[in-house]
């Protein structure tokens, strides 16, 4: 399991900033950053009424299924997707091969504007993720998990 995704304070702040900026610049309702395996990483905008956990899992499933279609068609992947609703539209894009950038928007914005702003945000996100990967690979980071005892694990299951 050396391939775990590890998130630190500094990078999470950067990602949150990118979400907030994208939310404003794209006139979006909300922006989510999700790991391709379905874990929610960061959000910006009007997320109070969203079930972010379910959205993350279903979005990742959707992207994985679309990736499966791409493979069948001998495409590497479909980098972007757009779902059009009556009130809310969803723009999905794959960033740095491992993240999904989700933008929810309504009539206050347009697909063209969202695409334009997503392009810039994706570049910034990629840089942050590169930094994160380097950091988590360097052994300088302390790990709390080496100190976990069997008792700690057992305690989780005390009903």
């Amino acid at each position: 399991m050396g391939n775990n995704l590890v998130m630190y304070e500094e990078e999470l702040q950067q990602i949150n900033r990118i979400c907030d900026t994208l939310h404003k610049e794209a006139n979006a309702k909300a922006v989510l950053v999700i790991d391709k395996n379905g874990q929610a990483i960061a959000q910006g905008g009007e997320v109070e009424h969203l079930d972010v956990t379910s959205l993350s899992s279903l979005t990742a499933g959707n992207v994985a299924a679309t990736g499966g279609i791409a493979q069948l068609l001998s495409e590497k992947e479909f980098a972007g997707q757009f779902h059009e609703g009556e009130r809310t539209n969803v723009h999905l894009s794959i960033v740095a091969q491992r993240l999904i950038l989700v933008v929810l928007f309504d009539e206050r914005s347009s697909l063209g504007l969202v695409r334009l702003r997503v392009r810039k945000a994706a570049l910034e996100l990629t840089a942050t993720i590169d930094q994160l990967v380097k950091k988590s690979e360097s052994s300088a980071q302390p790990s709390v998990f080496a100190e976990i005892t069997d008792a700690d694990i057992d305690n989780l299951f005390n009903d």
Partner: peptide, 13 residues
């Protein structure tokens, strides 16, 4: 691949 978030202090598996 678990997701360890040191910022929000969460482990996701």
């Amino acid at each position: 691949m678990s997701f360890i978030n040191y910022s929000s202090r969460e482990i996701n598996c």
